Computed example of a mutant assay.
Amino acid sequence: MMAKRLTVRDLLDQRGKHQFAMLRVETLEEAEAAEKAGVELLSIPPAMIMDRRFRDAAPTAFAFPGDNFYEIGDTADFLKWAFPLYKHGADGFYCSGSLTTIRAMADHALPVCGHVGLIPSKRTWTGGFKAVGKTLETAQRVWNQVKALEEAGAFAAEIEVVPHAITQAIAERTSLFLISMGAGAGGHAQYLFTDDVLGQNPGHIPRHAKVYADFAGEYARLQEKRVTAMRAFADDVHDGTYPAP
């Protein structure tokens, strides 16, 4: 018997009782692998939720489509963006937009996940790609962001690159479901990118990430095999070996 798809109520009821796993996936193959591996929460490109094959690949995953606020627009744009996705089975929505936008989405019963701490699309305000919350002032800023999201009607928040002790203290004082990306075990879910987990990211790997495979090396070996096979074909053509009689 297939496990049922998680709901917002399930996530909130399981806070502190079960640590959820979450991945950002970019392909249907990754989504299917995550489902089979027992990863409960998926961040996905918005277009994926519109693909009928997604629910065949990941029938029980709690799916968060999301994009940067500047790719979507203002509050009205966010609502127009979210409604079709919700109709096609989105379970929640990542939103790095304004509190006004989050409030409007929540007013329409759309489950919204905000973002606090290091917000890559807004990193200029916190000094770039670095931890947020290491001083009293910045820790209070994270806490105030969480309280503002609560008041706006969000049900969850991604808390990114915040010291563990701060995340833990906030988790004990908030009603939000906290999704930790490099913010320690105090969160209610642990979130990484599939590119990092599979080792298919040839560039910088964040300090909080953990690599479990070497897909980049496998891809390099496959590319070598492509070149070898194609060179053999070209040589056969050039010397008349292919096509054979």
Rank of each mutant, 00 (worst) to 15 (best):
L42P: 00
T101H: 05
A61T: 02
G66V: 08
I205Y: 08
A183R: 02
F215P: 01
A63Q: 02
G217D: 09
K210S: 13
V162Y: 01
H18I: 08
V39S: 01
L28M: 09
M181W: 05
L192I: 00
A183Q: 03
P163A: 10
R15P: 06
Q223T: 05
A185Y: 09
A220T: 09
M2Q: 14
M48N: 06
S96T: 10
S43T: 12
A104G: 10
L6T: 01
R231A: 14
R52E: 10
L110I: 15
F78M: 09
L85S: 01
N68V: 12
F129L: 07
A169I: 00
T75A: 11
L23D: 00
T124N: 13
F83W: 08
Y86Q: 13
G92W: 01
R221Q: 15
L99C: 06
K17E: 13
V8G: 05
G153E: 11
R24P: 00
F129K: 04
Q140A: 13
R52G: 11
K87W: 05
V39F: 07
Q145L: 06
I44Y: 03
M1R: 07
L12C: 11
L176W: 01
S175P: 00
Q168C: 09
H164F: 03
D51F: 01
V25K: 03
Q140T: 09
I102R: 11
A165R: 13
L118W: 04
H115I: 06
D239L: 08
E29Q: 15
L42C: 04
P45C: 08
A131P: 00
Q14W: 10
A106E: 11
F64Y: 11
K36D: 08
E158L: 12
L178A: 06
R123Q: 15
E172K: 15
F62G: 00
A189F: 03
E71S: 14
P245Y: 13
P111L: 10
A3N: 09
P120K: 12
V237Y: 12
E35R: 04
A183T: 03
Y191Q: 05
W125F: 11
D77F: 08
D56K: 13
K36T: 04
P46K: 04
L176M: 04
R221V: 02
K17R: 15
G203N: 14
A34L: 06
L79T: 10
M22Q: 10
Q145F: 07
Y70L: 11
P46E: 06
R173I: 02
A61E: 01
A131I: 01
R141S: 13
D51Q: 04
F54D: 00
T138C: 08
F64L: 14
A82K: 05
S96G: 14
V25C: 06
R103A: 14
T194A: 13
M50N: 02
G92Y: 00
A57R: 06
T27W: 14
Q140F: 10
G133R: 01
Q19C: 06
H208R: 06
R221L: 14
